[in-house]
């Protein structure tokens, strides 16, 4: 298991390096119309050019930045916000908790993507819209996970003891609960990033992405929008690479996340 986690971590590191060193690795800026439309791969354009003459290889490398940015931003905000809500709800219990549970039930039942589409349709297509919608739809699950953990932690005796000794709520939370929750939060950060990258590429594919920011999902969408994509060899270097990149990054986040989860919480049975 840890071996898989290591593989995942390595891939992730690889992508991070790609993102960081993007300007050095790419001959062109991704918005540069450096070639003729639909060129086949050559030394000047390693993966050829897209329909308007932009270098696909450059788009792919810079796309790493977008994917990582989205993955990390969404997971950070949703995990933190959801975490706080889950913590408070689990800690105080009573009607707050009941309300949250009710909300979670409803949230889980309602189909997400149709509602996401509806929401995103009202706002102009921009990176901020995508990030906002993704955070909106992921924090409830984070809250649920944290809440479950808090509930099981609440039963520990040292909490009762501390409370009897006169500890205030926030002290209990800060001193005892949050440290216990950290492993969960960390592994969730990684797993949630995996979801965010997948969800963003899906939204971009459906046409909700920012057309001037070439995320991998957007590159895929533009490739498929090219009517002759299945009738010319272009799919090999325009369609496959972004799809493979998305898959690899999600793969990396997933296995790293599960490895972390197992490491911190060996009683969990999700992992092997």
């Amino acid at each position: 298991m840890s071996r898989l986690g290591l593989i995942g971590g390595t891939i992730l590191l690889f992508f991070c390096l790609l993102a960081f060193f993007a300007p050095f690795l790419t001959p062109y800026s991704p918005n540069n119309f450096s070639g003729q439309p639909l060129e086949i791969p050559s030394t000047r354009h390693l993966l050829g050019t897209d329909g308007s003459g932009q270098d696909i290889f450059s788009q792919l490398i810079y796309g790493t930045r977008v994917s990582l940015l989205i993955g990390l931003t969404v997971s950070l905000f949703s995990t933190l916000f959801g975490g706080v809500v889950g913590l408070l709800s689990g800690f105080y219990g009573k009607w707050i908790d009941r309300l949250l549970m009710r909300f979670l039930d409803i949230f889980l039942t309602i189909p997400h993507l149709p509602l996401m589409l509806l929401l995103a349709a009202y706002f102009p297509p921009a990176l901020v819209t995508t990030i906002f919608v993704l955070i909106l739809f992921s924090w409830p699950l984070e809250a649920k996970l944290v809440r479950s953990q808090v509930l099981s932690l609440k039963k520990r005796e040292y909490l009762e003891a501390a409370r009897l000794a006169g500890a205030k709520d926030y002290y209990l939370m800060y001193r005892y609960l949050i440290p216990e929750l950290t492993p969960l939060i960390v592994s969730q950060l990684v797993l949630r990033s995996s979801w965010a990258v997948l969800a963003e590429s899906g939204l971009a594919f459906l046409g909700l992405g920012d057309p001037s920011i070439k995320s991998w999902g957007m590159i895929l969408k533009q490739a498929i929008s090219y009517e002759a994509i299945y009738f010319t060899p272009n799919w090999q270097w325009w369609l496959l690479p972004p799809g493979i990149c998305i898959t690899l990054l999600i793969f990396a986040f997933t296995f790293l996340g599960y490895a972390l989860e197992e490491k911190f919480n060996p009683t969990l049975k999700e992992g092997v």
């Binding site: 918005n31 119309f33 329909g51 102009p124 001037s212």
Partner: peptide
Amino acid sequence: FQEGQDGEIIKSMLKDVGIEIQIKALDKGA
């Protein structure tokens, strides 16, 4: 419009003469 690269191409051409363009791409209705 959201479809098409015309905006991007024009943006890059005008940049060459010192004019900056921000793209606002909307669906047809809006």
